[in-house]
Simulated assay, not measured.
Amino acid sequence: MAAALLHHHAQGRVRVTSAGSAPADDINPAVRTVMAEIGLDLTTAFPKRLTTDAVEAADVVVTMGCGDACPVFPGKRYLDWELTDPAGRSAEQIRPIRDEIDARVRGLLTELVPAPPS
Rank of each mutant, 00 (worst) to 15 (best):
T84V: 13
A3C: 11
G12A: 01
A3E: 14
L40H: 06
E92F: 02
T84S: 15
A30H: 11
A57T: 13
I38V: 15
T17E: 02
P114K: 04
V31W: 07
F46T: 07
P71G: 02
L6H: 00
A36D: 09
R95Y: 08
L109G: 11
W81H: 05
R77I: 14
G39R: 04
H7V: 09
V61T: 06
F73K: 01
S18E: 14
A19T: 10
D59R: 08
G107F: 04
R49Q: 14
A22I: 13
T63H: 07
L108T: 04
K48Y: 01
D25K: 15
I97N: 03
V105R: 01
M1S: 03
F73N: 07
I38T: 12
R77D: 10
K76A: 10
D26T: 13
D80K: 01
Q11H: 10
T110M: 02
E82W: 05
M1W: 06
G65V: 03
M64V: 05
D102R: 07
C66V: 07
P116L: 12
A36R: 15
T17Y: 08
T51A: 10
D41P: 13
A45P: 06
R49N: 08
P96V: 13
A2F: 06
L83Q: 13
A54M: 09
M64S: 11
T84P: 14
P47R: 00
A22D: 12
Q93R: 00
E100Y: 09
S90F: 01
L50I: 08
V61N: 07
T51Q: 12
A115F: 09
P116H: 10
V72S: 04
A103D: 05
R104E: 00
V62M: 04
E37A: 15
T84E: 06
T84R: 08
A54Y: 01
P29T: 15
I101L: 08
Y78E: 02
L83P: 14
P23V: 12
T51D: 05
A3W: 11
H8M: 03
G12M: 04
F46A: 06
A22G: 13
I101M: 05
